[in-house]
Design a protein around this nucleic acid. Structure first.
Lengths: 331, 331
DNA sequence: ACGAAGCGTGCAATCGTTTGCAGACTAGCG
DNA sequence: CGCTAGTCTGCAAACGATTGCACGCTTCGT
């Protein structure tokens, strides 16, 4: 409400002195500074961030663009971004694309002039579109790798390898894979990780069930494919899909894990709320958000390292949905 | 990147004309307007929202303050707010208080000058603090009622009444209630609704188990109390708590709904992901967010109706977790 | 005692836009 | 042909802060 002029008047100084007393205290005399600070406090003065943003060209705000706020994956990322950004003195604009790649560029353009930098979480646009959209802005990616933009990602391939190692150790030799959208960058990384691990083991066969929607409903569909595949375990693209698989299997009377082991990915909170609890790959999602802010803020402060990707480690957590496969009973 | 001066130069006109050509097209001649629009398009000009915000005193941004973004309840509200705000041309600042009432006022103060209006979702602060914090800003409340501020809420009392009516119709006569934090405004409204309905029926007894944390973990604790209460049904403060109750009952071998019926509240997405699926009160959460934006934008456009509360209807959805109580077997 | 150095303060420009005001030019009417 | 009305455009102020520059005063050294 009160602006610098009000404070200046109250303290009997000029507006410039008010500004300096607050941002460069050593440039004003002790007596003056005290008068100004006292007046500012008494009037509840806060420098207007919009005016400051215009003058300085820095708004102290960042933008976050996510595909779906209701998806617990992005809810966690958003939480992490918000927390760290606030700690660093930045306000956060958040925009939800509703999984529609075509609105991403528009959102970037709309936010660009309002923020100092942008965080794009799992953007759905293709590489060229994305690069063109962020042209002229400072941007970092979360959960996506792209030449020319710095990014934070999870070590998806390693997580997938851990999953396959776990299943193999339990005795599984035929493992079904329920993929998500083929456009999903992290999905492809996970698949590559599974393949690499399978190849390395040599004695585990992967059965590709196809692509399914990365939600509960997609899991319902995938479950029947998995049951028909002859595999003793199924690896889902993410936890939501795995939960759908569990649900469908239960209603069909397929026992988990005796008849079929099920593995998810992400370790969203819901994974522990079902029975059997879901074996999954714990992913530090809010950490991903926090690190994205760190990376962005580093850029804004002038760090100009190479635009590389940092991979955060993930960890398999074993719960009730995986177990030793039942011995094959011959008909 | 390009500003009005660049466009002016390119079109051979003054900056004022550029502005007018875009915001008040009927004030410039056809020929000039075409030249300006063409130049603006060619240069990819977008009026700088920060500068415009400074000049007009309206930033075309709104702020949303929620207790916890990871809570699916608020994730849905946030999604609704974001969607409607964007449709109305507003960008959204989002801030998460981590359930800490004491940071609410600070967040409001920090955002106040950046936004045209604020939406406070389920604020935890007490009435006086809240009113003082929003002094001087345009603010609306979601899921909280407070004299002097307009708000959108859900018809909690009616939802609770529907719950009790359902249980009574099934034959339940002794119903346990697991409350959430006593500071929860909506929790108290729900409790009041249950009490009113019980009183009206006359033949249903409510057993108060106490207050529990409104999460999965709180449900674990509440479950044992419920089992010991002699009630044939338990009503939880929200879905997360109800899921915790289900989980704990299952591990204790208590059958749902034969031995004990369980009812949640909110109908978050997870409620259908468990078995038995949760009977709960479907609450239009993203609708709540959208309506909050409508209310706020109405205020910003000058509507000055009385600061009243609108209640959105809720609807009981019956799933597998409630049923007819088993006949009492005498020892 | 005079000059230089240095500290503290204010003036004014600036960021990019919008908008009141006034000037210039056209057109229309008598 | 002259006056008026009206249309279009530009100038300049304004929003609220930050900051380069210059000025005035004190202080110190010689």
């Amino acid at each position: 409400m009160a602006n610098a002029r009000d404070v200046a008047k109250a303290a009997g100084v000029s507006v410039s002195t008010v500004s300096r007393a607050l941002v460069a205290p050593d440039q004003v005399s002790d007596a003056t500074r005290r008068r100004v600070v006292e007046a500012a406090e008494r009037l509840g003065y806060r420098p207007n961030p919009v005016a400051r943003g215009l003058r300085l060209g820095r708004t102290h705000a960042v933008g976050l663009i996510v595909p779906d706020l209701e998806n617990p994956y992005f809810a966690s990322v958003t939480k992490g971004v918000q927390a760290r950004a606030r700690a660093e003195g930045y306000a956060v604009f958040v925009a939800d694309t509703d999984e529609d790649a075509s609105v991403e560029a528009e959102l970037v353009a709309g936010l660009a002039a309002r923020v100092d930098g942008l965080i794009l979480a799992s953007p759905r646009s293709d590489d060229a579109t994305l690069l063109a959209a962020v042209e002229g802005s400072v941007a970092v990616l979360a959960n996506r790798e792209l030449d020319g933009l710095p990014s934070i990602a999870l070590d998806d391939a390693d997580g997938a390898a851990q999953v396959l190692g776990h299943l193999r150790a339990l005795g599984h030799r035929r493992v079904a894979v329920a993929q998500g959208p083929s456009s999903s960058w992290s999905g492809n990384r996970r698949l590559a990780g599974l393949r690499a691990a399978a190849e390395q083991f040599g004695d585990v066969e992967l059965v590709h069930l196809g692509s399914f929607r990365p939600y509960f409903s997609g899991g319902h569909v995938a479950a029947d494919h998995a049951a028909a595949s002859g595999a003793t375990a199924v690896v889902a693209f993410n936890d939501l899909m795995a939960l759908g698989i569990l649900d469908r299997l239960r209603s069909r009377g397929v026992r988990v894990p005796q008849d079929l082991s099920v593995v998810g990915y992400d370790d969203v909170a819901v994974a522990t709320l079902v029975s059997p609890a879901l074996t999954t790959v714990h992913s530090p999602l809010s950490g991903l958000g926090r690190r994205a802010v760190d990376l962005l803020v580093g850029r804004l402060r002038g760090a100009t390292g190479t635009s590389t990707t940092t991979h955060l480690p993930v960890e398999l957590v074993i719960r009730g949905s995986t177990g030793v496969p039942a011995p094959v009973t011959t008909g």
